[in-house]
Computed example of a mutant assay.
Amino acid sequence: MKPNKLTVISAIVLVMALVAGCSTSNTGGNSNKKITLAYVAWDSEIASTYVLKEVLEQKLDYNVELMQVDAGPMWAGISDGSADAMAAAWLPTTHESYASKYEGKYDDLGVNLDGTKIGLVVPQYMDINSIEDLTDEIGASLDYTIIGIEPGAGLMMSTEKALDVYALREKWTLLESSSAAMTQQLEKAYADQKPIVVTGWTPHWKFAKMDLKYLEDPKNVYGGDEQIHTIARKGLQVDQPEAYAFLDAFNWTPEDMADVMIQIQEGKTPEEAAKQWVEQNRDKVDAWIK
């Protein structure tokens, strides 16, 4: 018997569907294993979030959706369940207001990176060492402007407080910007050896590329050294126990993070930089997912 045209066409469609299904499974993860990671567009959080994404997709077969938002919506998203997790909680100071506001509505999985810091940053060639040195002479050379980042960031809230505590509010302005725009202005001023004051944090690649310093904070507005915590939504441990266990185990060093940040800054995409770091640190990654 010769197969009729309808039978042949049906067979072809079936084969194409099977091939397409195999392709999706190999590249896109298991459709039943989905997770949404929220993050803020800080260079440090881009690095950590894309490493998490790489491990979840390539090692644990998850479909990962990334949600880039400001700090407030990031915490709100975890707390209301519209996002599953984030590795971008700067505690105890920077994100203290968000942690308190949503207390009891999220799981704190603990520290994923130790030894962070925030504050006002200037080039080493500037002859000032403290926030109290922001005199009229310095202010006039800077148009009384501090270059900030995204509005709503904990660092910006602390800097607004610093303007009041150090009696700078009357003349000085905190310019809302973005992390990328802030570093661009810093690099330009640094190249020309001009004065500039920016909101800064470590770990960040700018400290590897430029000779910078924090202004001393004698009134402790910015707090001391901090840690970055991983935060998960309530119920994730039950819904996605494998992902939850990995996120709970995730931890690395400022040097690890700097490796990824510098690769991105030098031209790699976040995906490429994360993939390279994961391939070069298999022992550490295996310890996270064992």
Rank of each mutant, 00 (worst) to 15 (best):
M210W: 04
K213W: 12
K268V: 01
L66E: 01
V221E: 13
M210E: 10
A85S: 09
I35D: 01
D256Q: 08
Y125L: 05
T116W: 03
G81S: 11
E226N: 06
E176T: 10
Y39S: 07
I262T: 12
G223C: 05
A181E: 11
T135W: 04
G224R: 00
T7S: 04
A11S: 06
A181D: 14
L134H: 03
A71F: 04
W288Q: 08
Q280P: 01
V278L: 13
K59Y: 15
Q237L: 10
T93H: 04
A140Y: 05
E132Y: 13
G200E: 02
L212C: 04
N32V: 03
F246M: 15
Q185C: 00
P270N: 08
T27S: 09
L186N: 01
Q185V: 04
G104H: 08
A41F: 13
R169K: 15
D164G: 13
L236A: 07
E255I: 11
D61A: 13
M74N: 02
M86W: 00
A180H: 14
Q193V: 04
V221L: 06
T94F: 12
T199A: 08
Y166Q: 03
V55K: 02
K206G: 00
N4K: 11
S23D: 01
L120M: 12
L109I: 00
V122E: 01
A87M: 12
Y62V: 01
L236Y: 02
Y166M: 09
Q265F: 02
M126C: 01
T269F: 04
T94P: 00
Q263F: 07
I128T: 14
N112P: 02
A153E: 03
Y222K: 05
F250T: 02
A11V: 11
L14V: 10
K194S: 10
F250G: 09
S97E: 10
G223L: 00
F207Y: 11
A287W: 00
S79G: 00
M16C: 10
V197D: 06
V55R: 05
K284N: 12
A273W: 06
I146W: 03
S158H: 04
G29M: 11
G81Q: 03
Q237W: 07
D217V: 08
M126F: 13
G77K: 10
K33R: 10
Q276V: 09
H95I: 01
D283S: 10
T49K: 10
